[in-house]
């Protein structure tokens, strides 16, 4: 009998040593029990006052992608624009006086001029043909000839929730005309990435 008890005790001690506490053990509450003899006790109370730090202050919507579809080479060397419109909206704003939206082409360099928006051939990485396109806020074209600010070219500023602006992108298919007799050399799927940067404006 003694031997059995010894073995069982050893096993329990081994379990404890390796931290294998029973999964169904109840957690014991900590703290001091109040009794007639102990009329006060220390209780630690934690409270987190939410000051908004780390919480969502606004929500804006941006286009998930820009798709020009199938590009068509014009018959003559003349302008032939294809346009895609999109909306940027301020869905909600809280605790800030505004939201500034900027935009740039992925990979653009802050402080440098002529950081144009362009498409790249995803089918043929060696292709050097990178058709550029213009970005509009309403009817105003973003001027990429100037040095790009740190967060991208200024797009718009929202001052209250519910505001929306229709902008767009425009590509001139005339860029394909030099390749008219050898379209196969630039054939492929083209795509580009726009980067929208938002920043809260405080009072």
């Amino acid at each position: 009998m003694k031997k059995k008890l010894t073995v069982m005790l050893a096993a329990v001690l081994a379990l404890t040593a390796f931290g294998f506490a029973p999964a169904f053990a109840e957690e014991q509450a900590t703290g001091q029990e109040l009794t007639d003899q102990v009329r006060s006790g220390d209780t630690e109370v934690d409270a987190r006052i939410v000051d908004g730090a780390g919480e969502v202050a606004y929500i804006v919507t941006v286009p998930e992608k820009i798709d020009f579809g199938r590009l068509v080479c014009p018959e003559n060397d003349e302008d032939s624009f294809t346009i895609q419109k999109f909306n940027v909206n301020c869905v909600q704003m809280q605790g800030v006086s505004g939201v500034k939206v900027s935009v740039n082409n992925d990979g653009a360099t802050a402080g440098e001029k002529n950081q144009d928006f362009y498409l790249s051939n995803q089918t043929n990485a060696a292709s050097t043909f990178k058709p550029s396109y213009e970005v509009y806020v309403g009817t105003t074209k973003i001027d990429t000839s100037v040095a790009m600010p740190a967060n991208g070219y200024d797009y718009l500023v929202f001052t209250k929730e519910g505001q929306s602006i229709t902008g767009g992108v425009r590509l001139n298919q005339r860029l394909l005309f030099p390749y008219k007799d050898d379209i196969a050399s630039i054939a492929g799927e083209y795509s580009g990435t726009m980067v929208f940067t938002t920043a809260a404006i405080l009072d």
Partner: peptide, 8 residues
């Protein structure tokens, strides 16, 4: 469009 959260 796509909703994007923003922070202060």
């Amino acid at each position: 469009g796509i909703q994007i959260p923003g922070y202060k």
